[in-house]
Nucleic acid binder design. Structure first.
Lengths: 319, 319
DNA sequence: CTGAAAGCGCTAACAG
DNA sequence: CTGTTAGCGCTTTCAG
């Protein structure tokens, strides 16, 4: 791979001139500039970003570490981050920690080693890996991280409201299927559910935030004949709905269902799924804004933004 | 941020010793090694990957540039790539080109600049940006790229079979909704459709590979009263099904529907959606394997793998 | 087994 | 406006 020296030699100028031309920093004689560009073109020269960044001590790339690429909620966040980062001249690379603290740690280390300008993280656990991040701007999304910027959603309240909505619609034995213990959103959603039903209930189940988790939890819970279910996310909802179908139960009429996340398919099913829509893209956009702000001004106090989720009432929560 | 020099000073050794200790390359006196590790720990030292890679002239990261993060087909590919890359000790960063050649170009440049070990790409167009990649191992997925390793799916045949399946089930006015001209999978799917219906048809529509595109195309096509629809991907299918619903048409009975990609929700709707399932994860895994092979042996001739999609017959293609 | 020193490719003073 | 030069932080000969 050709280097700046090759280009310089070929154009008959110094490396400094090549650098200046290609970066458009200082002004360069148009003729030399022409020669440089030509030489670069002919050689198929690509600046070595490693060297450049090493020298400049900065990168225009942001890392986004999310816990599940296959979850539309997180990909929507990714879009939000990306859109606002792009317009600010940053690129974003996405890493999938897969809800796995070990993989998360690996990606954090990589982000650190590659000296990205900042990282947006949906932490798998509340604290562990954050310690490593000292020094690099970070913002947490979806789940809290002590002492840093964060963009959260008021899950607890949303869960409570959704449960109250079910109660208001005449459901009396409401179950809750949520994510694993320790995952903050899962805990919060359970807490909100309890707020509404008046404390812990035997109709609570925890499982992976995936279709399989939802299915297993629902199958188990169905033995207790609940008449409604609050479901922790849309992946789980897929499993829950499958389980309902297999048991010959119709959502709404037999078992009221409300799930977090407004999946694209929510209106396609019959009855359409009542959901708690989270402003995922906006979460991403806000996270990117906070990150950019922190990069610009590393010492400002951390800010926590909490966005609101809102209930979209559809058929699955009406008898 | 502390450097290797800081660590060396604190441990009272040379930078060379620090490097050796931390990389476990050569053997180092256990006592010195202990001091080094301790110093590194205390300082919160993270090796600067930029410097390291610059020196070593290699990175253990792969770039995966896909055309739509919000499309489950591509995220499944991502999982496939990631899983096999991980086990080989590589990490993968994901970039979303958003079907935008401009963004694709940016990400390719970044990948090159950061000197990633290789890139997996689902190209937005057949050739343009590839030229830049000379020198870096690349494998194309989902869509072809001249002169390089690729992992494709036999879309044309799958589309033909799906259309024949509809014909076999008694549908006679079959429409086709596919992606934009120039996107190879879109062209292939249309070609397969034509193979089955015996040539170009007035019931063809092209649109963005998104829900909105599917919806608009379907609304338009519905004016021609087709009795069945072959749909280019699952995002489009969402829009198509919405349009059907709005028009009071039931899939299967009124309008047969087959769509590419087995979305998780396909079995949730009524009737369940007949799909052409593509082995997305396997595509990713195979792409990663090819890439790794090429990294190891840059001069071997390009290989093209074609995987088969298969029809999963469900209710939406039966009257 | 350890240290000194060179250099990866680039940018940014600093002179000219 | 252009060239010379000194590193950015790290690894890796080469001596000791």
């Amino acid at each position: 791979m050709p280097t700046i020296t090759d280009v310089a030699r070929r154009a008959g100028v110094s490396t400094a001139t090549v650098s200046r031309t290609l970066n458009g920093k200082s002004t360069v004689d148009p003729m030399l500039a022409g020669r440089v560009r030509e030489a670069a073109e002919e050689l198929g020269y690509h600046p070595n970003g490693l060297a450049r960044n090493l020298r400049r001590q900065e990168t225009a790339v942001l890392a986004l570490i999310i816990s599940d690429v296959e979850n539309p909620f997180f990909t929507a966040i990714a879009r939000g981050v990306e859109d606002t980062a792009q317009t600010a001249g940053y690129s974003v690379v996405l890493c999938n920690s897969d809800e796995n603290p070990e993989k998360e740690r690996r990606y954090i280390d990589i982000a650190l080693q590659e000296r990205v300008a900042g990282v947006v993280l949906s932490p798998t656990d509340a604290s562990s890996s954050i310690a490593r991040l000292r020094g690099t701007p970070v913002v947490a999304v979806d789940r809290p991280l002590s002492d840093c910027d964060q963009v959260l959603v008021d899950s607890r309240r949303a869960a409570r409201e959704a449960t109250e909505h079910l109660i208001g619609n005449g459901y009396a034995r409401i179950g809750c299927i949520t994510g694993p213990t320790g995952v903050r959103t899962a805990d919060d959603r359970l807490a909100g559910y309890r707020d509404a039903v008046g404390g812990a209930s035997p109709l609570e189940r925890r499982a992976e935030y995936r279709a399989g988790g939802g299915r297993r939890a629902a199958e188990e819970l169905l033995a207790c004949s609940p008449d409604a279910l609050l479901v922790g996310n849309s992946s789980m909802a897929v499993g829950v709905l499958e389980a309902l179908g297999k048991a010959g139960l119709r959502s709404g009429r037999d078992v009221g269902v409300v799930a977090f996340d407004d999946a694209p398919w929510a209106t396609l099913i019959d009855p359409p799924l009542t959901v708690i829509a989270q402003p995922a893209r906006e979460i991403g956009a806000e996270a990117a804004r906070l990150l950019l702000a922190r990069i610009a001004e590393p010492d400002r106090p951390p800010v926590a933004t909490t966005l609101r989720a809102h209930l979209i009432e559809r058929g699955s929560s009406r008898k």
